[in-house]
Simulated assay, not measured.
Amino acid sequence: MELNYKAIGEGKPLIILHGVFGSADNWLTIAKELAEHHFKVYLLDQRNHGDSPHSDEFSYQAMADDLHEFIEKHELDKPFILGHSMGGKAAMKFSVNYSDEWEKMIVVDIAPKAYPVHHDKILTGLKSIDLDAIKSRGDADKQLSEYVPDLGTRQFLLKNLARNESGGYKWKINLDVINEKIEAIGEGQEDRLAIEKEVLFIRGGKSDYVQDSDIILITQLFPNSEVKTIEGAGHWVHAEKSEEVIKLILDFLR
């Protein structure tokens, strides 16, 4: 699949993969800063997200294959790979399946373990929005607030609303397929081949996505890895503590 992307800067290629319900723009601020340090940063919209094509196939294998296709098409020589949440899982899948195609990897606030489905209210809320009836984003926000009380989360989710040709609204994400296959997003890393390359795991101190107990599995699969904790940050560590995240990234990639 040919993914939509944005490219910023010049230098060593660095590919960034966003999380579920996200898009390339989620990391744009950090990408601009990294580009100042001699990286060419590629921000990808993963399949069924952003402006990339929709598909009934939605799995980490498919996302890993998309990344492989992107690297081949753009003739990138062993890029650095960074993935947040779902993007981190896709990066880990890619790292095993295409172990010769990358140099270093950064995984942000996700572990290679399986996670139970925990996006039920978000999906129910998104599906409850009557796209034919709403006249503004405010209308959509009001409907979504019945299921998602946090304003910041709603603002993030509603970035997926776009105007259609008739002047109404449509979803940029493939909401039906994401809803149908959300269990696949929680799947653990089934591949048990140890990867010896350098990998950095960044976790938020207030996030429960990467527990101390998960470090055993991380080091089994990625023996040459380290886990760094950014205190005071939750799952959206890159949005909450961007300067600290940038410093960790630069220190690791240099």
Score class of each variant (00 low, 15 high):
4 N>F: 13
5 Y>F: 15
6 K>G: 00
8 I>N: 05
11 G>F: 07
12 K>F: 05
13 P>A: 04
14 L>C: 10
15 I>A: 06
16 I>V: 14
17 L>M: 14
20 V>Q: 01
25 D>M: 03
25 D>E: 13
34 L>G: 03
34 L>M: 11
38 H>Y: 09
45 D>C: 02
47 R>C: 08
49 H>N: 01
50 G>C: 05
51 D>E: 08
53 P>F: 09
53 P>L: 05
59 S>W: 09
61 Q>C: 00
66 D>P: 07
66 D>T: 08
68 H>F: 13
69 E>L: 12
69 E>V: 04
70 F>I: 03
70 F>T: 01
72 E>C: 09
73 K>S: 12
74 H>E: 08
76 L>G: 04
77 D>R: 12
78 K>H: 13
85 S>W: 05
89 K>A: 13
97 N>A: 12
98 Y>I: 11
99 S>V: 10
99 S>A: 14
100 D>M: 10
100 D>Y: 11
103 E>W: 01
107 V>Y: 09
111 A>N: 07
112 P>G: 10
119 H>L: 15
121 K>H: 11
122 I>D: 05
130 D>W: 03
134 I>T: 00
136 S>H: 02
139 D>R: 04
143 Q>P: 00
146 E>Q: 12
148 V>D: 06
151 L>W: 01
158 L>P: 05
160 N>S: 11
162 A>G: 06
165 E>H: 09
166 S>H: 12
169 Y>Q: 02
170 K>T: 14
173 I>P: 01
178 I>R: 07
179 N>S: 15
179 N>W: 10
181 K>L: 15
181 K>T: 08
182 I>T: 11
186 G>E: 09
186 G>K: 10
187 E>G: 09
189 Q>M: 15
191 D>F: 12
201 F>G: 06
201 F>I: 03
207 S>F: 07
208 D>K: 12
209 Y>P: 06
210 V>W: 04
219 T>M: 08
221 L>N: 06
223 P>A: 11
225 S>Q: 10
226 E>W: 01
229 T>F: 03
233 A>L: 01
240 E>C: 02
249 I>Q: 04
251 D>V: 11
252 F>E: 12
254 R>S: 14
254 R>D: 13
254 R>Y: 10
